[in-house]
Simulated scan of single mutants.
Amino acid sequence: MPNTADLLSTLLAFPTISANANEALIRWCAARIGDAGGRIHIMAGAAPGKFNLLASFGPDTGSGIVLSGHSDVVPVAGQAWSTDPFILTDRNGKLYGRGSSDMKGFLAACLSAATRADKGKLLRPLHLAFSYDEEIGCVGVRDLLDRLAEEKFQAEGCVIGEPTEQKVARGHKGKLAGCICCFGLPAHSANPALGCNAISLAADMVREAETMQAHLAMSGPRDDAYPYPSTSVHVGTIKGGSALNIVPEYCEMQFEIRNVAGDEPRELVETLREQAAHITARRGKGRVEIGITNEYPGLDTKEEDLFARKILAAAGTQSCKIGFGTEGGLFSQRLQMPVVICGPGSIDRAHKPDEYVTQDELDACDMFLDRVIAGLSS
């Protein structure tokens, strides 16, 4: 019976950066689950080589529990790793590798727990759901959830094992990502009045985004359970211009809105569009287009929810809300079930060189999942 660290070592060796296929990892997991007596459904995704996996143990019917995680990881290019990111390296109980915290440690713990469990005693089903392309906007899980919704899938609730240091997170903000595209008029820089500077338009829109965030922080909805308690409006990239002596014709910015409950991100986008129209009207030249490229809902499971209380008792830790997004809001919205986030590792180590999870954290997750699964037998 392989332990969780051994399983993690194998999972890390699959370089499932979101740009790559995840098929080999999914089929390897399916084989392990099949050996453990699970019923397996591999579902092809929208892109070649991309797959979701749903596996079930115990009865075919009944209100069971879903343990869920994503199989993809963020890139390592340009990062200064001291170890090979796709080979697990153990240094004094710290297990280094890309995805060790986010979130192959939890996938390994799920496989390990399913192997250990006495499936003959299960009175309600245990489901494992592994998705693809979470890191680029919770893309792949939507295919899985659409399929489950069509099949009238039901469960008592879902635990998503993102790295929370084994705390039970009941909520996270929603996210909307988009592009602010600024179109000017080219001219020689010696006579800028003949043109319209697209970078200058973009600078105006950056100020509008900052003004909006300041207004939301001052008078918008707040949730003090979050590290940043208000809705944030963030410009992350900007590209524009072709040469120093040309008035730039085009500039684009990628932006995101991470909203607390009570703020509607699409309404905030409409406000940005209105401000863009005022800016271009004052100038009498140029235009600004704002498009939405990705969005997913927030999660807000109530503290008094029975499922949340059960998972909190099994974890033996405290509840919280987290600042980063997960697939939890989509599970909750599309399948109408309570969802909590609880897993080994720390998000503060994720997406960085020398990402790691500790052996102690994996051991704690093993004990947590054993208690969760034992609850399906009573």
Rank of each mutant, 00 (worst) to 15 (best):
E208F: 04
P15S: 14
A80R: 12
D305T: 10
P227Y: 09
L312K: 09
L123F: 05
E249M: 13
L145V: 02
V139C: 06
R334E: 00
V260A: 10
A261C: 10
R309N: 08
V357L: 06
V74R: 10
P248M: 09
S319F: 09
N191M: 14
Q336V: 10
V260E: 03
P297Q: 11
L11M: 11
F86D: 05
E327F: 00
G174W: 01
E162S: 11
L145E: 01
P338A: 07
T280W: 02
D60T: 13
A24R: 08
P48S: 14
D118S: 12
Y96M: 07
S82C: 11
A177D: 09
K94S: 15
I292W: 00
I238K: 11
A24Y: 01
G137L: 13
L144G: 05
P2F: 03
L376I: 02
S189H: 02
V339C: 05
R147Q: 09
D90P: 04
C179E: 10
A113L: 01
G323W: 05
N245Y: 05
R371G: 01
Q318I: 13
L312S: 12
R27K: 12
D370M: 06
V260T: 05
C182H: 04
D363Y: 03
A149H: 04
G37S: 07
L185M: 12
H70E: 07
V357H: 01
F130D: 11
V247I: 12
A374Y: 00
H127A: 15
G174L: 12
S63K: 14
G316M: 12
A46V: 10
L88Q: 03
P221S: 14
Y356K: 14
S219E: 10
C196H: 04
V73H: 08
R98I: 14
M218K: 09
N52D: 08
I26V: 12
V74L: 15
F51R: 11
L145W: 01
V247T: 09
V247A: 08
T16Y: 02
H351V: 13
R309E: 11
C320F: 06
A24V: 05
Q166W: 04
G236S: 13
V76L: 14
R273E: 10
V269N: 00
A314C: 13
G298C: 05
R98W: 08
D305W: 02
I40T: 03
F86E: 06
S230V: 11
E150H: 06
P192I: 15
G298H: 00
S230Y: 08
V141M: 10
G178M: 12
D60Y: 05
G97P: 05
A44I: 05
I347H: 00
P2S: 14
N197A: 11
V141N: 02
I341S: 04
F106H: 07
S9G: 11
Q79T: 09
R349Y: 07
K321D: 06
L148M: 12
T10S: 10
S56P: 02
P229F: 14
G161R: 10
R371K: 14
V247M: 07
A109R: 00
E295R: 02
T237S: 13
F106E: 06
T237K: 12
G140D: 03
G93V: 09
L272T: 02
